[in-house]
Simulated assay, not measured.
Amino acid sequence: MHWTDTHCHLYLQQFNEDRTQTITRAFEQGVRRIILPNIDRTSIDDMLQLEAAYPGHCFAAMGLHPCSVKADFEEELRVVEEWLQRRPFVAIGEMGTDRYWDTTFWEQQLEAFKIQASWAKSLDLPLIIHCRESMDETIELLEQLQDGSLRGVFHCFTGTAEQASRIEALGFYVGLGGVTTFKKAGMERVVPYLNPERILLETDAPYLSPVPYRGKRNEPAYIPLIAQRVAALMDMPLEQLSKQTEENVQRLFFSKKQ
């Protein structure tokens, strides 16, 4: 069985001591592809170096994380735009909205979202959307922007079945990660009702490790643990989930929209 970690910040300093070993462990667990969403201008060099070191396995996305949207967000977006014009990326992201840490720059977050969504349309690229404590607002914004040309994934999905239905109706996917394994997360009330053709698997490493590693550093090798939980909740053979999610990854990130 093969897997793809569709959201992993493997370029961060938490992996500086054992990055090579971490990737080796991922390969040993069948995780053959790792998508690397950007954060802001400070993460670009390390992300691209990692992609260059593992061609065909690590794939960079380019975007501005909502928690990095500050007063100078237009300058940050200029850097993103320059990179998007310079070379190919598999997606625009990590981008989105966040009302958890700070709402000081909420209006700027919305503007940054709209700008990056417009680039996704013009470049025919999917969006990797972050929306912490802001899912309804983000879905509503996307419903306004969707003209049939947008596609992407709501990363780290922890919402309701109704929210998932609205996301799927927009032609978007939901990314399931370590939270799916948490006993008190309530995902057992949601995952069984998801469309298998609209789910992706992710770690968000180094964050949000699945059980039994909760509280420790996350890594791509834990994708099969997340997959086992998802397969059990969906009453689906693990092999079928592997095949389906790999088809979903290929469709979203590695095929041009038809």
Results as ranks from 00 to 15, higher is better:
Met1Arg: 09
His2Cys: 07
Asp5His: 00
Asp5Asn: 02
Leu10Gln: 05
Leu12Gln: 01
Arg19Val: 06
Thr20Ile: 08
Ala26Glu: 03
Ala26Leu: 13
Ala26Ile: 06
Glu28Tyr: 09
Gln29Ile: 05
Gly30Arg: 03
Val31Gln: 06
Val31Asp: 04
Arg33Asp: 13
Ile34Glu: 10
Ile35Asp: 03
Ile35Ala: 03
Thr42Trp: 03
Thr42Met: 11
Ile44Lys: 04
Asp45Ile: 14
Asp46Ala: 15
Asp46Cys: 08
Met47Arg: 10
Gln49Ser: 07
Gln49Leu: 14
Leu50Ala: 14
Leu50Thr: 13
Tyr54Pro: 07
Tyr54Ala: 11
Gly56Leu: 09
Gly56Lys: 10
Cys58Pro: 08
Phe59Gln: 07
His65Leu: 07
His65Val: 03
Pro66His: 05
Cys67Thr: 05
Asp72Gly: 11
Asp72Arg: 13
Glu74Met: 14
Glu76Arg: 03
Glu76Pro: 02
Leu77Cys: 00
Leu77Gly: 05
Arg78Pro: 01
Val80Ser: 01
Val80Ile: 14
Leu84Gly: 08
Arg86Val: 10
Arg86Ser: 14
Arg87Trp: 04
Pro88His: 08
Phe89Ile: 01
Glu94Pro: 00
Arg99Ser: 02
Tyr100Ile: 05
Tyr100Asn: 08
Asp102Val: 11
Glu107Asn: 15
Gln109Cys: 01
Ala112Arg: 04
Phe113Val: 01
Lys114Thr: 11
Ile115Asn: 03
Gln116Phe: 09
Trp119Asn: 14
Ser122Asp: 09
His130Arg: 00
Arg132Met: 00
Ser134Thr: 02
Met135Ser: 06
Asp136Val: 13
Glu137Ser: 06
Glu140Cys: 07
Glu143Lys: 11
Gln144Pro: 00
Gln146Trp: 10
Asp147Asn: 13
Arg151Tyr: 13
Gly152Met: 00
Gly152Lys: 04
Cys156Gly: 06
Gly159Lys: 04
Gly159Ser: 10
Glu162Tyr: 07
Glu162Arg: 14
Ser165Ile: 05
Ile167Thr: 01
Ile167Met: 02
Leu170Tyr: 07
Gly171Thr: 06
Leu176Asp: 04
Val179Pro: 11
Val179Phe: 07
Thr181Leu: 10
Lys183Cys: 05
Ala185Glu: 08
Gly186Phe: 08
Met187Asn: 00
Arg189Gly: 04
Arg189Glu: 12
Val191Ile: 15
Pro192Arg: 07
Asn195Tyr: 09
Asp204Phe: 04
Pro210Met: 01
Pro210Cys: 05
Pro212Arg: 12
Pro212Leu: 10
Pro212Ser: 11
Arg214Ser: 00
Gly215Tyr: 09
Arg217Val: 02
Arg217Cys: 02
Asn218Asp: 10
Asn218Pro: 08
Pro220Tyr: 12
Pro220Asp: 13
Ile226Leu: 06
Gln228Trp: 09
Gln228Phe: 03
Ala232Glu: 15
Ala232Lys: 15
Leu233Pro: 08
Met234Cys: 10
Lys243Pro: 00
Lys243Gln: 15
Lys243Ser: 06
Thr245Pro: 05
Glu246Gly: 05
Glu247Leu: 13
Phe253Asp: 10
Lys257Thr: 09
Lys257Arg: 15
Gln258Asp: 15
Gln258Glu: 15
